[in-house]
Structure formats: C-alpha cells, structure tokens
Nucleic acid binder design. Structure first.
Lengths: 186, 186
DNA sequence: ATCAAATGAGACATTATTGTCTCATGAATA
DNA sequence: TATTCATGAGACAATAATGTCTCATTTGAT
C-alpha cells in the first residue's frame, strides 16, 4: 500500500482537529490527541510538526470544499442552480470553513494561493449567476461572495446550535441571499 | 487621579491588542508590546496576566459595542431605524467584534454572561423591528440576528479590504439584510 | 500461530512564552 | 531645580507546549 500507516488513525486525528481547531486554533496537541482518542506520539508519527499538521489540514479543507462545490455544480441546470447546490454542499463542511477562517494562514504562500483559487472559483460562479439575473447587476460581485461566505457560516452555526435543521438552514440562507441581493427589488 | 499610570500607554496597548488579536488570537505578548510601541515590562504593569488582558479586552469590547448601540438607538424614530443606526455604529467597531468572535472565551462565566446580554439586546431590537414589519414574521428572530452579525462582519471586512467605503458598506449590508429578510417577498 | 507494523505510555530534552525583577532614563510636577 | 513616577531594556526563573525517543503491547495480515 502507499501509506503503511493505518488510515483510520490519521482520519480520526484530522476529523478531531477540524472540530477542535475550528473552535480554538490555539488548542494544544495534547488536547487534540486526547479528543482524537490517540496517543501524542502517534500524532507525531502522522504529522511531524504542528505546522505540518495545520498545513495539511488547510490543504485538505480547501480540497474538500473544492470537490464538494464541483460535485454540486456538476448536475446543475444553471449557474444559479449550481450556486444553490454549492451552498447546500458546503454547509456540512462548516468545520473546514471555520478552520480556514480562524487559523492564521497568511504566512504560508502555498496555502494562500490555494485559498485564493477557491475564492476565485466562488467568485466566478457568483458572477455567472449574476449574469443569469439571480443578483442585481449593480451590486459588486465581491460583496455577494462575501455575503455568501458569511451566510454559509451563519447557517452552519445555526445548525450547530440546534436552531435549525440542515434543510431549514439551507433554505433560510438561500432566501436571505437571493432576496437580499436579488435583481427584483421591491 | 484614580489611575496614576498614563492613560495613553494603556490605550495604545488596548488598541493594538484589538487589531492584533482580532486577526491572530494566539499572538505573543512580545509581538503585542512591539506593535503597541511599548516595552514588555510596561505591558505587564498594566495587565498582570495574559488572562487579565484578554478578560479586560473582552469587557471593553462588549461595553463599547453596547454603548455604541445604545447611543445609536437613542435618537431613532423607530425600532427599524434604531437597528439601522446600530448597524452603522457597530461596523467601525469591527476590531472589537472580531476579537470577541475569535478569542475563545467560553471558559469565563462573567464574560459569557455579558456576551449573552449583548446578544439578547440585539435580539430584542431585531424582534421589535420585526413587529414593525421590517422583517418577515415567519423568519426566526435568531436567524435574523445571526445574519445581522454576519453582515456586520462582512461589512467590516469589505472596508478593511478597501472594497468599499464605510457609507457604501453600511448601505450594502442594510439592503442585504432588509431585502433578504424583508416582509415583502417577491 | 507468526510476524511485521502501528500504537500507547511515558520519559526526556528543547523551545517558546510567560511572568518577575532590577536599574537606568526621561518626563511631568511641585 | 528637585522629586516623583512611568517607562524601556534586559536579565532571569517558571511554565507550558513541542518534538524525540524507547519499549512493551496490540493489531492485522499471512
């Protein structure tokens, strides 16, 4: 096999890390190991440094969000529909989103580039949806994208707090987005 | 005088701390001292612990946001107007908002209580504006409040990135909020 | 059942950060 | 001018987190 080390352990660490670090980026590796149900030594066998870990997590998070967005867009009828499917697909990845938002990653140019690419993709999708008439053409695309991101986060929070179900959160976020920035102003 | 220590130094530290910690909650005190243009020893003269500092900052942030919201609401014509004035008043306090959002403060019950109080005030204002017909009565108040917060953050980011002026950001956020959650659906 | 590989526990050294202290300097005040 | 007080610089100890290592145990595959 390519990686001789058991995948389950690695995945447990990664999953626990997203949960923990998305709430507290400064949490210690001991705490992470504990939450992952893994020894601290094992953690270091999989990730040499804290830097290595954080960097890996960032790339995974970006990759997963990217993949989820692509998959969601694949069978969409329009750019507007693709955007909605993307929203729906990204909300469950709130951990990843939160991790990327909270962890200070500016120093890392590789990651910054990947991050920028992901942002650009969202921007392009938003732009395309805008051209379809989903959004008011007078509203800056950058603002729409920011709101998209902000609503993504709000929806995830809402679900986490038990205020709404996944389906409800998607619906609320979508309504807020499209009515708030929609072409048909009252 | 009450505090024999010069206020300028203390304020420099606090201001630098909001800027720094709102971006990176894990930044070292050395870095903070440097940014504040102050010796590390001086920093410890004003704030015994890191905990003391963070706790103080949190209380200041909450107090300032509270005061700004109250002042903004004071001469408003309606609850809806008060909400808009509040939005406008809170955006410049994005540092404080970001600090409170990023710094892990759950452990501190005092601060958690104050934080909750601030949140409840916003909730009440939103609820009142909802009753005035500003928002669709079918949308949960909790969601509206979350969106309000999210847009506050987005507006601050937008200004920070130089994408829009203060006035433009307020306008965009307000439009997004009221049209997105407004009573008159298309 | 055997063997190789991964793991957990824990000791250990290293490092970064924190917090304390002293002393000399500069600024405000009387 | 003399005095008081805040400050900066830096030495220092204490602490917390990190990273490395060893060894016994467990797990999975053959």
């Amino acid at each position: 096999m390519n990686t001789p080390i058991r995948l389950n352990t690695r995945d447990s660490i990664i999953e626990a890390a997203f949960v923990l670090f998305s709430r507290n980026p400064g949490a210690s590796l001991s705490e992470l190991a504990e939450r992952a149900g893994v020894g601290r030594a094992t953690l270091h066998r999989h990730f040499a440094n804290r830097d290595d870990l954080v960097r890996t997590l960032a790339l995974i998070a970006i990759e997963e969000m990217d993949a989820a967005a692509d998959a969601a867009s694949a069978d969409a009828q329009s750019y507007s529909d693709a955007l909605r499917q993307t929203l729906q697909a990204l909300i469950p990845l709130g951990d990843r989103h939160g991790f990327l938002a909270r962890e200070p990653l500016e120093t890392d140019s590789d990651i910054a580039a990947e991050f920028k690419r992901l942002d650009r993709e969202t921007n392009e999708l938003v732009e395309a949806a805008k051209q379809e008439g989903l959004f008011d053409s007078g509203i800056p695309t950058a603002w729409i994208t920011q709101v998209f991101d902000a609503l993504l986060f709000a929806a995830w929070e809402s679900i986490k707090l038990g205020e709404s179900t996944n389906v409800q959160a998607v619906e609320l976020a979508w309504q807020t987005l499209t009515l708030g920035l929609g072409a048909t102003k009252k």
